[in-house]
């Protein structure tokens, strides 16, 4: 009897314990959800909901005023086969991304190396070189760029002082894109700071050992600096490439996509289609194509990283 009671009370205890644990877990779940609720609401209402809506709209004709009309894959077919301006936008964007990003990273790496030589005053220089990347995206700088590269701007004055004839940099389809590329490359300060942080992580002993072995500066750069910096290069490459694909403000303000669509960036054309022509369905389809494009390129970077990014923990490649 006593024994039976003992068993009984122990199972009782177990049950109480279980119930308490369940209660505790339940409470923890509730607290957790309450605490992340701001993000959760935002995620559902401003990300997932809109993404579903955007996907649906991409198969319709929708102009905000009348209700959406289902058109199947027409939008996608028209974009990919029938839209000359889309092809132009894609070409311009790809040129822009694959010219400006490598240039920006080259400048960033070169100056980061210069500022990593341990000389005095480098922190002041780092600051100065970094300023353009904080304010480069502002309207104020767009205004400055428009005047500096205008017909009678300072750039032409300089060019003419050197004895060449001036160019209407912004008004000429051959040069307008380079003006925007220059503006983006000018903002190499933030990747430079990331490179600098990466360079400082490289153990000095490696260079000392290489020096003992009589390695030249170039060999040290190729065999120590570059391999150990590849994770940082990879990070900068991915971030800057994705960022470049979405460039909008500066092109909108400086060239407006012109002249003759020579700077019609993808984001700019998408804005035009959506908010000037109010072709929201067509623009949604363009947005999905952009997402697939960016995801595809990012995926290629990640897949290729196996072959060129050096991760120390894996003992090499």
């Amino acid at each position: 009897m006593a024994k039976l009671e003992e068993v009984d009370s122990s199972t009782n205890l177990q049950a109480i314990h279980d119930r308490n644990l369940k209660k505790k877990r339940m409470k923890e779940n509730l607290t957790g959800y309450a605490i992340i609720s701001p993000w959760l609401i935002g995620f559902l209402a401003l990300v997932i909901g809109p993404m579903i809506a955007s996907f649906y709209l991409s198969f319709t004709n929708y102009n905000l005023l009348s209700s959406a009309q289902w058109t199947g894959i027409d939008n996608y077919v028209n974009i990919l086969t029938n839209d000359g301006r889309f092809r132009q936008a894609l070409t311009v964007t790809l040129i822009f991304v694959f010219v400006s990003t490598p240039l920006k990273l080259l400048f960033a790496l070169f100056l980061a190396m210069l500022f990593n030589t341990g000389r005095k005053g480098t922190s002041v220089f780092t600051t100065i070189y970094y300023i353009p990347s904080i304010i480069g995206g502002s309207v104020a700088i767009a205004v400055v760029w428009r005047i500096l590269f205008g017909r009678n701007g300072a750039v032409n004055e300089f060019v003419q002082a050197l004895g060449f004839s001036g160019v209407n940099w912004i008004g000429n389809p051959d040069t307008a894109l380079s003006v925007l590329i220059l503006l983006v490359v000018w903002q190499f300060g933030s990747p430079m700071i990331i490179f600098l942080a990466g360079l400082r992580q490289i153990p000095q002993e490696l260079y000392e050992a290489a020096a003992v072995d009589g390695a030249s500066a170039f060999t040290k750069f190729m065999k120590i600096t570059i391999p150990l910096l590849t994770p940082v290069i990879f990070f900068n490459l991915v971030m800057q490439t994705i960022g470049a694909f979405m460039t909008f403000t500066q092109a909108y303000l400086i060239t407006g996509g012109g002249p003759m669509d020579s700077t019609l960036f993808y984001a700019l054309y998408l804005y035009e289609v959506a908010f000037e022509y109010l072709r929201m369905g067509y623009a949604s389809a363009m947005a999905w194509i952009l997402l697939v494009l960016i995801a595809g390129i990012t995926l290629v970077f990640f897949l290729s990283s196996k072959y060129w990014v050096y991760y120390e923990s894996e003992g090499g490649r």
Partner: peptide, 19 residues
């Protein structure tokens, strides 16, 4: 959360505007 870090604004821009 992590997936949305790199999501291009263009994807949600139009439906958010409609909303």
């Amino acid at each position: 959360l992590m997936a949305t870090v790199m999501l291009p604004v263009q994807i949600t821009l139009i439906p958010q505007y409609i909303l």
